[in-house]
């Protein structure tokens, strides 16, 4: 299984996936900490998180997968949503809450 296949499987078998530096309990980057805080503000505590600091192949692979040069990266139902700036914008507009609720309703 290639790294791209592993990432595809991760993002398609979990409704909400966050690639981040550190863990939700101990984020090791301010942007990743923001991403976790936004998900929690949306009422989402239980999401699949991947600590890219523990796996350099995933860290580089996920940048290729989304064609996006930075971490964190949020995926909902397999679709790349964005990084922490976009998460904040979508949270402020209420769009993120709607996407998350729809994804987690099943």
């Amino acid at each position: 299984m290639s790294v791209q296949d592993i990432i595809r499987e991760q993002v398609t078998t979990h409704p909400v996936v966050l690639y981040m530096k550190g863990t939700p309990q101990f984020p090791q980057c301010g942007f990743s900490a923001n991403a976790v805080a936004i998900l929690r503000a949306c009422g989402v505590e239980d999401f699949f998180s991947v600590n890219v600091l523990e796996d350099n192949a995933i860290r580089e692979g996920v940048k290729q997968y989304a064609n996006w040069p930075t971490i964190p990266q949020l995926y909902i139902n397999g679709q790349f949503i964005g990084g922490s700036d976009i998460m904040r914008e979508m949270y402020q507009s209420g769009e993120l809450q709607k996407l998350l609720q729809a994804a987690l309703a099943h």
Partner: peptide, 10 residues
Amino acid sequence: DALSRHRLVY
């Protein structure tokens, strides 16, 4: 949308 704007910047 924001995603496309950020991609242009990157």
